[in-house]
Design a protein around this nucleic acid. Structure first.
Lengths: 197, 197, 197, 197
DNA sequence: TATGAATGAGGATTCATTCAT
DNA sequence: CATGAATGAATCCTCATTCAT
């Protein structure tokens, strides 16, 4: 790829996360990110095509590692229910471990324009495929209902996790997010129905 | 002085929906909205305090009616499962019936700044309470699992519906949204599990 | 003249004085003056050509009466020194008696554009002629120095009185302005020099 | 961060003087000043906080030098009468030498809002203190009348000079201002009285 | 590579004035 | 005479990006 990596590349991305988390998307000027990274404004443009490219790269970097780590954990499990639990747990764990990043992905980056969010969605596909694998495996093993529409399931799982994390961020991370992994997994697996229906 | 209602008030809100849907949030200049509404720029300010006030009012108007109509339909049903179905159906129906509005609520309005989104969240509470009522009633009747965490359920339902609609909008509304109401309801009620587990 | 006098004419002028004194020149919108006068915005334009016309008329009305009253007092005196004293005393007295008007003439109206101030200067000429009469009489009687340049004297007298009143207004009228008439008169007559020079 | 001086700083201030003198205070748009200075609009904001800051800086720069030069001249003289003469002469000389600046200080800048004029008054204090020094010295030496009220004298001197210059500006600088220094000084020192009183 | 001074396009809002009623 | 809803022109400032050094 054409990316110029290097120490300053990472420096700038980390600076962007901090600046956006602290000041918000619309107050995250390139000059502010440059200052936070300890480089000149112009230097940014030696590593990134434009401002949007910083944000996409940020998302790619973070989400790439996010997916990778989640995948590792899932592969340790055989049971579909456990795989789903790991996925949820990793989702919550990684964002809980980096509150600033959570603020950026759940709140701030959503203020970006439609075009940027389209590109962000591209990056998200890697994560959605992870969900798909868990789902298809679970269907094949007879654990998950084979009649379910894959796309809808994906939307339910991602929509739920996303909403849970967003609410947690909006409550300033005041409660324990990771401990919600189990009840959320059970809710997704069993649905709303009472056992004795 | 309170809201100045009147024919032009509605005219401006409808114009705002169309302009934002077509040109996007950041390209929805007041002058463009005024032109679309067929009034002078200054006339906007006889009915709205400022640009943000147009957007909040838009959301209040639309969401107010949205909640109202959904409530009516829910009350027609007795069965908790049917109530949930009606809620989902109305959610999809109303947004499918007004694609421009769906674009605005699912994509464009989310680009607004923190302050505006805070006010939007206030308005959303009315809808979340509707979900709560369905849930609590269903728990009392023994239809829904009484052990479920209300907050998490609310987040699963809203997160799922929101994600389903957003995906539909991002696919340019090319497929039938309303027909997804039933499978989504079943998925939420029964979860991912296979029947014979 | 084309002036439409009438009860509302005066009402509007008095309202303008109050509004300008309270809110300042740049916050004295036509609609605010109309509201203060208890008439509709449009009604203003039945009595005045435009906003500028209100201000000029205000100045004409007030200054006309100002000059008239001052003239009356001057004519009561024979001694040039006393005439000058009366002029100064009346200048201070009339503005001290109407603090709002003083604020308007000394501070607010000066913020008007060059064109308006030119017209205001026209109105001021009547007052300057009054000074001239006192001066010329005093020269003829041998009381004032016949070698003095009339224009410069006029500027010294008016400049001094104006500056004294402006300073008084900027100190919120906290001290007694009228009692300054005598020392100011003596200072103008005798100058800065010590008696034993 | 303090003032960013530099060649462009002066360029912009000089451009502001020319633009305001030619087009008037309210027609002196930032873009017009930038164009006159030969810089981009945005460059203005590298040197000045906002438009008001240009005007205050203009006044500070010009008045600072004005006071400084006047002070130098005054200190060359010993006689109080001569000191006063120098002060008046410098006042007239410096404004006569820069007609555009005279227009700006005597007419245009007075249209500024209350806040700006307050700051301008702060700057003026330096000049008034100069007058005070001349006055107090003259009193001590027995040249000036020790019974005079300092504040009133200051107002007479400043009011007179200001009025003389303003009249000169309003007559488009058509006559010689500097030659008025002597008669004005004599008038201030001797007052209106005839010698043989 | 790195710098940072310079660029310049773009938009919400106010308010004097009009005119149909 | 009186109303007041409607008009629409006009401007300061920000900030992503460039380029001479």
């Amino acid at each position: 790829m054409g990316k110029k990596r290097g120490p300053k590349y990472d420096l700038i991305i980390e600076a962007a996360v901090r600046v956006i988390a602290e000041h918000g998307y619309h107050q995250a000027q390139v000059s502010k990110i440059a200052k936070e990274a300890g480089v000149a404004d112009g230097t940014i443009y030696l590593y990134f095509k434009n401002k949007e490219d910083i944000l996409i790269s940020l998302f790619e970097e973070k989400m790439g590692r996010f997916v990778e780590k989640t995948k590792e954990q899932i592969e340790k499990e055989n049971d579909p229910g456990e795989k789903l639990f790991r996925l949820i747990q990793m989702h919550f764990k990684q964002l809980a471990a980096n509150y600033a990043l959570a603020v950026v992905t759940q709140l701030e980056l959503r203020q970006s324009n439609a075009e940027l969010r389209l590109k962000i969605n591209e990056v998200l596909k890697g994560y959605l495929q992870l969900i798909d694998v868990v789902l298809v495996d679970g269907k094949e093993s007879g654990y998950f209902n084979a009649n379910l529409d894959n796309r809808l399931v994906r939307q339910m799982i991602f929509g739920t996790l996303d909403e849970v994390v967003t609410n947690w961020v909006m409550k300033d991370g005041k409660y324990d997010l990771v401990s919600l992994a189990k009840p959320v997994q059970q809710m997704l697996v069993n649905g709303l129905t009472s056992i004795n229906r």
